[in-house]
Amino acid sequence: MNTYEDILQEVIALLAPLAPPGRRVAEETDFVADLEFDSLKVMGFVEKVEDRFDISVPLNLLPDIRTVRDFAVQLQRLLGER
């Protein structure tokens, strides 16, 4: 039931309220360059993801995530491993 497209849409929906006003969130959106995420915003977002999907996102994934797509791909993998 968790296709990549479903997960991507969920992630985008969770991110939308955290994005700077007027900024659209899409698959290619870069967390740092486009959404201006600092470390506290990242933590706030990961909390939402963990609560929504009831998983734990390992800290060591973050350094290799740049875009919404990178995040959705990792999330799909984590959900698949459950």
């Binding site: 967390f31 740092v32 995420f37 470390s39 990242v42 800290l59 060591n60 973050l62 350094p63 290799d64 995530i65 740049r66």
Partner: peptide, 8 residues
């Protein structure tokens, strides 16, 4: 032990 998004 603190790593940032995209900070590999």
């Amino acid at each position: 032990a603190s790593i940032h998004l995209g900070g590999h």
